[in-house]
Design a binder for these strands. Structure first.
Lengths: 182, 182
DNA sequence: CACTGATCTGACCGATCGGTCAGCTCTGAC
DNA sequence: GTCAGAGCTGACCGATCGGTCAGATCAGTG
């Protein structure tokens, strides 16, 4: 997949990341990216098969960590520890990859339907169940979904807040807001 | 502004509302709307000056209520009552207009830059301050922003939950999660 | 009847999109 | 010196977008 042209390839990724963060994925054209890199649009498509491939490569690390968090949650023996692992793992994910998450800038619904994010919907449903603690209780599911969406939607805006401070604030919020599982 | 052609005018609004809810504002073309109404694209543009005018008319009631909530918050004598009014008012707004809010489907960032929503950014900043209780405390602002964005982003997904049940769940969440102002 | 104005249509416009393609340039191996 | 291939370009493609426009239709009015 990844061609070995380190310089330009990386430049394109960096430029795309910057542009996506400002104007979103759909709002950024290949011409925009090419302009920021200082090459032609055709050069961008020489290094990447298509526009989606750029997004795929940018999001790959975050998706990998999300997958392993999903496995980790599934391995927990009881709902209470699953809830704790889900909360801590999700906050850690959101803080570490907040710039990558910010790229999606409110385009989750459409982007989730793209092949790259095929399994993400299932994973996030399991994540909500784990966070809710009582998946059968509507208010618990509402709480979990609001917190999950809220963190995903906003974490990218706290680029200037140190990792630890942001993580502590989010974890404290989850501990206060979630209904404890038993 | 509003031409007096009740039938088609209303049909277009209803069709646009349905399509926006499924494919978002940017993801819905004038041709899509015309197709759903059963008229030509030119007919749509006969009843509305442009695409944005359709969105404007759909969102007008919700924006009006948001404006009056802003005034109401500003009139409170102390931070504690401002926080209470903000929480109750915002939950009420989100529940009542959840289908309208759902139309924006994660397009807040782009749409907020359109003239229709010119003042919304200022209003939402004041709303966050009021909800935070301690606007100078970073963790309080993070909490308020996560909750505000989370509710706005998700309330449209609870179309099948009764108003009262959804409102109670959201208000209980806010009471648990927000740091009390003094 | 003639005329008017509201309603609506099909054809069209310029702009922009993601993507393709033939061919240019340069470097390194033989 | 020559050849191959990586890297890149400009021109181009078909599709789609929001929006315009001249004109057809038709109901109401005098």
């Amino acid at each position: 997949m990844v061609r070995s042209t380190p310089q330009t390839h990386g430049d394109i990724l960096a430029a795309a990341s910057r542009r996506f963060a400002v104007t979103g994925y759909r709002g950024t054209s290949l011409q925009d990216i090419a302009g920021e890199v200082g090459c032609s649009k055709a050069a961008v498509l020489y290094h990447f098969a298509n526009k989606e491939a750029i997004l795929t490569e940018l999001m790959a690390p975050a998706i990998g960590v999300l997958r392993s968090l999903d496995d980790q949650i599934a391995a927990q023996p009881d709902p209470a520890s699953a809830q704790r692992v889900a909360a801590e793992g999700f906050v850690d994910l959101a803080v570490r990859f907040r710039s990558e998450i910010a790229l999606l800038r409110g385009e989750f619904p459409e982007l989730l339907q793209q092949p790259v994010f095929a399994h993400i919907q299932l994973i996030s449903e399991r994540l909500i169940d784990a966070l809710a603690g009582h998946p059968e209780r509507p208010s618990a599911r509402i709480t979990a979904l609001v917190l999950l969406a809220g963190i995903a939607e906003t974490c990218g805006q706290f680029a200037d807040v140190p990792d630890k401070e942001l993580g502590d604030a989010l974890l404290a919020l989850l501990r206060r807001a979630l209904e404890p599982a038993h």
